[in-house]
Write a protein that binds this DNA or RNA. Structure first.
Lengths: 210, 210
DNA sequence: AGTGTTATGTAACAAATGTTACTGCATCCC
DNA sequence: GGGATGCAGTAACATTTGTTACATAACACT
């Protein structure tokens, strides 16, 4: 495992911390679609992402969903962090967007490292900063953009985290992420196709201008 | 100043830290409507709120606004924190919602205290956590609620931070905060009045069921 | 090939929100 | 008093988004 950690985190963490992570962390490989965190559950370990992407969703009381943001290599889940440190319940849902490799670190180590390693503190602060910015960008999208631009932004974000400008999702799946209806997505996708932004096929969408 | 600090932060910070804050911090009193942070500006000190309330807004490129959340006594601005620690530009705008008293702490001390005081670290982590939760609650409102419920929630939040169920704002001001138009707010307020939730007067709105 | 299932396309309509325009009413200032 | 100004009420209409219903196309399985 140590090599995986070093490849991805050696410029972030000092050797001693890398060694500790190697000793207490457990390597985990999850397939696309795997549910990593359920809303309302307590969390016993936090993930460091080695490869792949995780999507973080918000769910309301009626079970309606909304995509908050994606996590990628070198990221960690700020909500998990704050849940661990503050001993709160999870407020979000996490699903593997692609096959992913993670290192799970037990929460007991978190506070200890916060005191012990400056690089860990900075990593944690930086994660919070990034997630706050991303949450605010999500607010920007919902508040200031119309659905067609939100959709285009969503498609572009997807091509980025999947490193593939073919998106293998149904219109219904996209509708869930954007919290709207399938018909609306079909309608707008057709418009985007006519404008030359995407090419539509069954079960997949090709994004033209990335 | 030391007394003001102690009154508001003594259960959070150890005496030694309180003493440091007293030495390096500057006391600041601002009137309602005062602009504390402009978007795009660099920040040289962070505020600890002693009394009053601050509203945090997001502004898009066209100058359109949206209320993110309020800060109250014992709070600090997480965006300021992360701007200071990460040396980024401000992503938000901060306006005094009421007359407010603050202690401004120079940013150089922030990192130092992060290493030195456990209580400061916890305060910073906790601030991030709260703000992330509030940003996500704002997302909930925009994504899952219709404008009438958003408006009612807004009015209730306002009565809470102002500790007064009379709201002294014009419909236009409310429209800016919720990023909609004055006519929409007037229409919905009238509906809320008919439903018995508010009582409308000139320049002020009385919230009935808090 | 035949059948059932799923994904997509589309029309027609409903509801929510945004826009424009105009009115009346306080308040302020002279 | 009389005019200017800012705020609120409301109608009429446009646009965006949501909903229902149905048709067609692709695919999966036998």
């Amino acid at each position: 495992m140590i090599q995986e950690i070093k490849n991805n985190y050696k410029n972030l963490f000092e050797d001693e911390l890398l060694e500790e992570i190697n000793q207490v962390g457990t390597f985990k490989e999850v397939p696309e679609g795997f549910e990593l965190i359920k809303p309302g559950s307590y969390i016993k370990s936090m993930p460091l992402i080695i490869s792949g992407a995780i999507k973080i969703l918000r769910e309301d009381n009626d079970g309606d969903e909304l995509l908050l943001y994606f996590l990628e290599r070198g990221d960690t889940c700020a909500m998990t962090l704050s849940c661990c440190l503050g001993h709160h319940k999870s407020e979000i849902k996490a699903i593997a967007e692609t096959d992913a490799k993670l290192i799970m670190v037990p929460i007991e180590k978190m506070e200890e490292w916060t005191t012990k390693y400056k690089s860990w503190r900075n990593f944690v602060f930086d994660s919070y900063h990034k997630r706050l910015i991303e949450a605010i960008e999500t607010i920007d999208s919902i508040a200031f953009l119309k659905m067609d631009d939100r959709l285009l932004k969503y498609l572009k974000d997807k091509t980025k985290v999947n490193q593939d400008n073919i998106i293998n999702n149904t219109h219904q799946e996209i509708a869930y992420d954007l919290h709207t209806s399938r018909v609306v997505i079909s309608r707008l996708l057709k418009k985007l196709e006519q404008e030359g932004n995407v090419k539509l096929n069954r079960n997949n969408i090709e994004v033209i201008h990335i």
